[in-house]
Amino acid sequence: DDVELRDGDWRVELKDADEEILRAVEEAIKNGASEQELRELAERLIR
Rank of each mutant, 00 (worst) to 15 (best):
17 A>Q: 08
4 E>I: 14
29 I>R: 07
21 I>H: 03
32 G>H: 03
29 I>H: 09
14 L>K: 00
30 K>C: 03
44 R>N: 13
33 A>G: 04
25 V>I: 15
5 L>M: 14
10 W>P: 05
43 E>C: 06
7 D>A: 02
30 K>H: 08
29 I>C: 04
16 D>S: 07
43 E>M: 04
35 E>Q: 07
5 L>H: 15
24 A>S: 07
43 E>K: 11
13 E>G: 13
7 D>S: 02
2 D>W: 09
26 E>H: 07
45 L>H: 07
24 A>N: 04
5 L>C: 12
34 S>T: 12
1 D>N: 13
6 R>I: 12
33 A>F: 12
18 D>I: 06
1 D>L: 13
42 A>R: 04
20 E>A: 13
28 A>L: 07
34 S>P: 03
10 W>Y: 05
13 E>M: 14
10 W>M: 06
14 L>E: 02
41 L>K: 00
40 E>A: 14
11 R>M: 15
41 L>P: 00
25 V>E: 00
11 R>H: 06
22 L>N: 05
19 E>G: 08
42 A>C: 10
35 E>T: 06
28 A>F: 06
40 E>Y: 02
42 A>M: 15
1 D>V: 12
29 I>T: 09
16 D>Y: 12
25 V>A: 01
4 E>M: 12
28 A>N: 01
10 W>D: 04
41 L>M: 08
34 S>Y: 02
42 A>F: 15
33 A>T: 05
33 A>D: 02
16 D>L: 05
16 D>I: 06
34 S>I: 02
36 Q>E: 11
10 W>N: 04
14 L>W: 04
17 A>E: 05
12 V>R: 09
12 V>M: 07
23 R>S: 09
26 E>A: 12
15 K>N: 10
30 K>L: 11
44 R>S: 14
24 A>V: 14
35 E>A: 11
10 W>R: 04
27 E>V: 11
21 I>V: 12
36 Q>G: 07
43 E>W: 00
22 L>C: 03
33 A>N: 03
22 L>K: 12
6 R>H: 09
33 A>E: 01
44 R>K: 09
37 E>P: 00
46 I>W: 01
24 A>R: 11
47 R>E: 13
7 D>T: 08
35 E>N: 08
26 E>L: 10
18 D>S: 09
32 G>K: 03
20 E>K: 11
4 E>G: 15
33 A>V: 10
43 E>Y: 00
45 L>Y: 01
40 E>I: 10
17 A>T: 06
20 E>P: 07
26 E>Q: 07
30 K>E: 08
14 L>R: 00
46 I>T: 09
23 R>T: 06
39 R>G: 02
28 A>D: 00
24 A>Q: 13
30 K>A: 12
11 R>E: 08
4 E>D: 11
1 D>S: 13
43 E>G: 10
7 D>I: 06
6 R>K: 10
7 D>E: 08
25 V>K: 00
39 R>V: 07
39 R>L: 08
18 D>N: 09
47 R>V: 11
1 D>T: 09
9 D>Q: 01
21 I>A: 04
26 E>V: 10
32 G>A: 02
17 A>P: 03
11 R>C: 07
27 E>T: 08
40 E>P: 00
5 L>A: 14
9 D>M: 00
9 D>E: 02
47 R>G: 14
17 A>R: 05
30 K>W: 05
25 V>D: 00
3 V>Q: 13
3 V>H: 13
18 D>H: 11
2 D>T: 14
39 R>Q: 10
23 R>I: 08
37 E>W: 02
36 Q>P: 05
16 D>C: 15
29 I>G: 08
31 N>T: 08
5 L>E: 15
2 D>Q: 12
36 Q>N: 12
10 W>C: 06
44 R>W: 01
38 L>N: 00
45 L>V: 07
23 R>P: 00
25 V>C: 03
16 D>H: 09
34 S>W: 01
39 R>W: 05
13 E>P: 05
46 I>E: 04
46 I>N: 05
19 E>R: 06
33 A>Q: 04
7 D>V: 03
44 R>E: 13
33 A>P: 01
1 D>F: 12
32 G>I: 01
15 K>T: 10
42 A>E: 05
25 V>N: 00
20 E>Q: 12
6 R>V: 10
14 L>Q: 02
35 E>H: 09
30 K>T: 06
1 D>I: 12
17 A>L: 11
7 D>G: 07
40 E>H: 07
37 E>R: 02
3 V>S: 12
46 I>L: 11
26 E>K: 08
9 D>T: 00
26 E>C: 07
25 V>P: 00
44 R>I: 04
13 E>H: 10
4 E>P: 13
43 E>P: 04
30 K>V: 09
23 R>G: 04
43 E>I: 05
2 D>H: 12
32 G>D: 02
21 I>L: 09
47 R>D: 11
41 L>V: 01
17 A>S: 06
3 V>T: 13
34 S>L: 04
8 G>C: 13
12 V>D: 15
47 R>M: 08
42 A>S: 07
